[in-house]
Design a binder for these strands. Structure first.
Lengths: 338, 338
DNA sequence: CTTGTTTACTTAAACGGTTAAGGAAATAAA
DNA sequence: TTTATTTCCTTAACCGTTTAAGTAAACAAG
C-alpha cells in the first residue's frame, strides 16, 4: 500500500526526515517557508503519522485504559461517557477492558499494562478482588492509576468515590422516617469498600434510631439472576418479613420488583424500596422508584481529569487528589406512604 | 526506569536479540535448551514485550476500534459486552470512541484510523451522518470495517443488523391487532437505515390493514429531552389523538410514559405503547412495557467475530458476510387490553 | 574425503517516527 | 576585518521488536 510516511515527504521536498518531523511539530528550527511547503504537501497527500512509531520513540502512548467490572449498568455507561469526553479533549485514546467481576481476568488485564501500552489507568475493581498484588505491581512500574467508584484503600493513589457511607445512612434513615423498622439490605460483596461503607451507614442509621441490626436482613447477592430472585423471595417470605429494602446496586431493583409482584406484596404499602441506581426509568416504574443516584458522569470525568493532570505534570502526587462527589437521594413513590 | 527489553535478556544470556525474539515466539530455529533458558529468564525478570515496537515492525496493532453514537443506552452497552468478549478471546484490544451523534466527530475519529492505529473498525454511524466520504476513505485504505446496527448501505462491507423492517411491521401489526387505528411513530432520524426500515415496516403494516398513513403521526425526535417531551405532548393533545405509540428507540420510552402521566392518559386503555428497547426494567414499568428487543449482545459478538475473520484470513470478502439477527417482540401490559 | 544438508545461531536492516549534535551560510557584534 | 551568534538545515542514533540473509559447526550422503 506504500503508506505516506515522513520519509516520502522528505524525498518529495528534498529535505531530511528530521526537517519534516520538526516542521510538522512546528519547531522554530524550521523556516516559515519550509513549514508551509511541508504542511501543504502533508495535507495534499493526506499524511497521517504512525502513532506507534511515535509511541515507541517517546515512550508515551497517548492512550489510557479503563477497566470496569461490567458495562451493562447505567453507572458504568455514564462513567464511560464522562471519561471519553475528557480523553477526546486531551487528545488521548481510550482502551476499554471488562473484568466481568473476575479476579483472574483483572489480573491479566493489569499485567499487560506493564508493557507501556497505556500511559495511565482508570480502575474500578472487581467484586472478587481481595488480593491486590497485581495493582501494587502496576503502581511499582510507575503507571499512574486512578480508582473510581470501586476503590482499593490499601493502594496510595487518587480515588474518586461518592459518599457511600452517608448514602447508606440516608437511605436507611429515609426508610425509617417512613415507618420502616425491619430493613433488608441487598449487596453484592463483602469485600468491596463501597459495599462495606453503604453497609456501615445502614448499620449506624439503625443504631441511631434504636433499631437492632439483624444479620438475617443482610443478603449477599451474586451474578446469578435466578439465584438472587430465590434468595430475595426467601427473605420476603420470612416470618419477620422486612418492611423496607435497600438495593445497593441497580441491577437488583428488577429482582425486588418482580419478587414483590409475584408475592403480591404492595410497594410501598407493605414494603418500601429504595435503590442505588442511575436508571433513567426510575421515574416510570410502578411505583416510581426512590433512588440514591450516583454522579456517574461526573465521577468518570473527574477520574479522567485527575489522571490527565498526573500525565501532564510530573511530580504530581496522585494520592493527594482523592475526591468524593456526593450522591443524591430522589424520593419517589416506592418509599413513601401513599 | 530501564525496562526489561529483549536487548537486556540478550546481554544477560550472551545471545543476540534475534535469538531471544525467536525463542519467545517458539521458532524452531532455536534449540530446546536455549528456549528454556530464555523463557526462564523472561519469567524471572517479568519481561513484557513492548506492544508498540511489535506493532511498528509487523504493521499490525492487535487492536480494533468501536465507534458508537453514545453509550448511555442499553443496546450499545450490551453490544460492547459482546464485542469485548470476542476481542479478549482473540487477544485483541478494544479502543472505544463516541461520536455523540455528531458528524464532525465521527469524521475526525475515522480519519485517525488511517494511521494504522487499529487493524479493524466496528462502526455504528451517527444519526447526523449523510455524507459518507470519510467511511469511503477509510475503506480505500483497506482498513476492514464492519457495520453493526446503524449501517450505511452504500459501503460494500459486512453489516450486522436486526430485522428492522419486520420489527416495525410486527410492532405496528401488534398494535392494530389490539385495536389501534391511529398509531404515532417516534424516530430519531430521517436518514438512518434502521429508522427508515422501521418506518417502512410501519407504513406497510398500516397499508395491509387498510389504514391510511398520516404524516402528522410521524415525529422526528432530537437529542433535546425537553423538546422531545413538548413535541410528544403536542401529538398527544391533538384532536385526533393517537391510540398507539411506537418508540423506535429506547430513550423515548421515558418521555412517553411521563407525558402520558402528565396528561393523565391511561396506558394501555387510552393509548397503547410499544418500544424498541433492551431495558431490563421493561418488565417492572407501570404498566410493564411491550418491547421489540434487539439481540444487542449477539450483534456485538457477531460483528466482532466477522471482523476477526477478516483480520485472520486474507482474501476474506467482508461484503459477503452480512448477517441479520432477528429481534423479538415481548408482549406485556402496555400494549394489550386489560 | 568431498559435498550437501541441517542445526543453531548472528548480523544487520527495517518499521516510522524523534531528537541530540553538528555544520554551513547569513547576520550581528566587536 | 575578525569573531560570535543566529538561522535553518542535515546526519545519525535511537525507541524495541521482527525477520531476511548469512554463517560456522555438526552431521549425513555419496
Amino acid at each position: 500500500m506504500g503508506n505516506i510516511t515522513i520519509k516520502l515527504l522528505a524525498k518529495e521536498l528534498n529535505l531530511s526526515t528530521a526537517a519534516i518531523s520538526k516542521a510538522l511539530r512546528d519547531s522554530h528550527d524550521i523556516s516559515a517557508v519550509t513549514k508551509q511547503r511541508v504542511l501543504a504537501l502533508a495535507a495534499k497527500l493526506d499524511y497521517t503519522p504512525n502513532p506507534y512509531a511515535g509511541s515507541l520513540r517517546r515512550k508515551k502512548s497517548k492512550t489510557i485504559a479503563v477497566v470496569l467490572p461490567e458495562v451493562a449498568d447505567s453507572f458504568f455507561s455514564l462513567a464511560i461517557n464522562g471519561i471519553e469526553e475528557v480523553a477526546i479533549e486531551k487528545g488521548y485514546h481510550v482502551l476499554i477492558y471488562l473484568s466481568h467481576e473476575n479476579f483472574i481476568r483483572e489480573k491479566a488485564i493489569l499485567k499487560d499494562f506493564q508493557s507501556g501500552r497505556v500511559d495511565g489507568v482508570l480502575l474500578s475493581i472487581s467484586a472478587e478482588t481481595n488480593d491486590i498484588q497485581h495493582i501494587q505491581d502496576l503502581c511499582n512500574k510507575d503507571v499512574p492509576l486512578v480508582f473510581f467508584d470501586r476503590v482499593c484503600n490499601d493502594i496510595p493513589t487518587a480515588k474518586i468515590t461518592t459518599n457511600d457511607y452517608e448514602s447508606g445512612y440516608a437511605a436507611t434513615q429515609h426508610l425509617i422516617d417512613n415507618g420502616c423498622r425491619n430493613i433488608a439490605l441487598l449487596s453484592i460483596s463483602n469485600s468491596l469498600a463501597i459495599s462495606n461503607k453503604r453497609m456501615e451507614g445502614y448499620q449506624q442509621a439503625l443504631k441511631d434510631n434504636g433499631i437492632e441490626y439483624d444479620a438475617a436482613n443482610h443478603l449477599l447477592c451474586s451474578n446469578d439472576v435466578l439465584k438472587n430472585n430465590e434468595e430475595i423471595k426467601k427473605i420476603l417470605l420470612r416470618k419477620k418479613r422486612p418492611d423496607g429494602v435497600i438495593a445497593t446496586v441497580e441491577k437488583l431493583t428488577t429482582a425486588i420488583y418482580l419478587v414483590c409482584k409475584e408475592l403480591q406484596l404492595n410497594i410501598p404499602n407493605q414494603i418500601k424500596v429504595i435503590s442505588f441506581s442511575n436508571q433513567a426509568s426510575a421515574n416510570i416504574l410502578n411505583p416510581s422508584l426512590t433512588t440514591i443516584t450516583q454522579p456517574a458522569f461526573d465521577m468518570g470525568k473527574a477520574a479522567a481529569s485527575i489522571l490527565f493532570k498526573a500525565l501532564e505534570k510530573k511530580n504530581f502526587i496522585l494520592k493527594n487528589e482523592s475526591l468524593v462527589i456526593p450522591s443524591t437521594l430522589t424520593i419517589r413513590e416506592s418509599s413513601t406512604n401513599s
